[in-house]
């Protein structure tokens, strides 16, 4: 297992009023993402716990791509990964911010 934190700045705070959301399951080739609106301004924090060692550079690229496509400012993402592929990770992150944005 490997654990690390990625910090970044988004273009803007995430719209919507949702405080917290969870998507995905820690199944084989899958991951869970807990989203909490706990950061200030445009800051983004991604805490990763993954079963696959040695892929930090790939995670950083996926997160950078996701933040460029979305605007998840103010959100902390806590991830438990069980060997998901990068495209699955991107989909889960996008699914999570969509849920947080549209929550009442």
């Amino acid at each position: 297992m490997e654990t690390f934190t990625i910090r970044a700045q988004a273009r803007a705070p995430l719209p919507g009023a949702g405080r917290q959301a969870i998507v995905g399951v820690v199944a084989s080739g899958n991951l869970e993402v807990l989203l909490e609106r706990s950061e200030t301004g445009d800051a983004v924090v991604v805490d990763v716990t993954t079963s696959a060692r040695g892929f930090r550079a790939v995670w950083e690229a996926v997160v950078a791509d996701f933040i460029a496509r979305s605007s998840p400012g103010g959100v902390r993402f806590s991830i438990h990964d069980n060997g998901a592929r990068p495209d699955t990770v991107t989909l889960r992150l996008l699914q999570g911010v969509k849920l947080l944005e549209t929550q009442p």
């Binding site: 297992m1 820690v26 807990l34 716990t49 079963s51 438990h80 069980n82």
Partner: peptide
């Protein structure tokens, strides 16, 4: 689970 090198669930 950490002792077995396995990721937990929230």
């Amino acid at each position: 689970l950490e002792l077995f090198d396995l990721p937990p669930a929230f």
